[in-house]
């Protein structure tokens, strides 16, 4: 089965293990102290694409990312694991995009890669945590969507997913093409392959600008973003004096008298 799969992958600051130093006094994020990684859930989407390629060897997997030039590393991470192609969308006019502008830009690039059968992405990013992009890319393409998929199968042009719903899961089906966002309940991504690393270590990543994807500048970047950050405050907990309780039988017995009625 000839299947053209595009995986949306994002480079994000690794905010998972940091302390409060990550925020500067003005509330902006101190990116300088943070390492960058591929958004963790996007790796689960990549694995689903590679599993489809294992099953259908004629399938092609294209990694599509958007960001500054250093985000080309994301495309390489895809190549090292078996992706065939990669494109980075990089243009000053893409800067400051909210999810509406981001999804428009990604959808324009997907149109350039046509015919595409399947678009996969992580269910959400660890920096924005909006989970908007899958739905909005699907909307811009006019395709159906399955968000929060734990598992997916493609057979004879039909896609079946198991996706998360409130307090449970549902099985749903539609025909290609479709956009699917993948959760971290799917299988983890395979490691880098040494042969692929050697092969792609110096491969240039294809970079597309606004003109390359025939995008309308008014729908991209800051200009195309309806939302604005009015302010950002680091979360500082209200300081209040906690009472220390001695970890002794007496200390705890006294505490229990206070807190249990």
């Amino acid at each position: 089965m000839k299947l053209n799969v595009v995986v949306l992958m994002k480079q994000v600051p690794d905010i998972r293990t940091t302390n409060n130093d990550v925020l500067l006094p003005d509330g902006s994020i101190n990116r300088a102290i943070l390492p960058t990684i591929v958004n963790p859930n996007d790796m689960y989407a990549l694995e689903q694409a590679l599993l489809l390629k294992d099953m259908y060897p004629e399938a092609t997997v294209t990694v599509l990312s958007m960001g500054p030039m250093q985000a080309a590393d994301v495309v390489r991470e895809g190549w090292f694991r078996g992706a065939d192609k990669g494109v980075l969308l990089c243009d000053k006019q893409f800067a400051g995009s909210d999810t509406l502008a981001t999804s428009y830009t990604l959808a324009q690039a997907i149109k350039q890669l046509a015919p595409v059968d399947l678009v996969l992405c992580g269910s959400q990013s660890i920096d924005g945590e909006t989970a908007h992009v899958a739905s909005q890319v699907a909307c811009h393409l006019g395709w159906p969507q399955f968000t929060f998929a734990n598992a997916l199968q493609v057979e004879n042009n039909q896609v079946t997913v198991e996706r998360q719903i409130e307090n449970g899961v549902e099985k749903a089906q539609t025909s290609l093409p479709v956009v699917i966002s993948v959760t971290n309940q799917a299988p983890v991504c395979r490691p880098k392959n040494a042969k692929n690393v050697m092969m792609h270590k110096r491969t240039e990543v294809l970079v597309w600008s606004l003109n390359d994807i025939q995008a309308d500048a008014n729908q991209c970047g800051w200009t195309g973003s309806p939302t604005r950050v009015a302010n950002m405050k680091p979360l500082a907990w209200q300081a209040k004096e906690a009472q220390q309780i001695e970890p002794t039988d007496t200390g705890i017995a006294t505490l229990m008298q206070w807190i249990v009625r």
Binding site: I15, R16, T18, N20, V22, L23, G27, I29, I126, D127, E129, V229, A230, N231, M232, K233, P234, L235
Partner: peptide, 8 residues
């Protein structure tokens, strides 16, 4: 940012 800030 992983709940390290509140944004408006």
């Amino acid at each position: 940012f992983g709940d390290k800030a509140m944004t408006t």
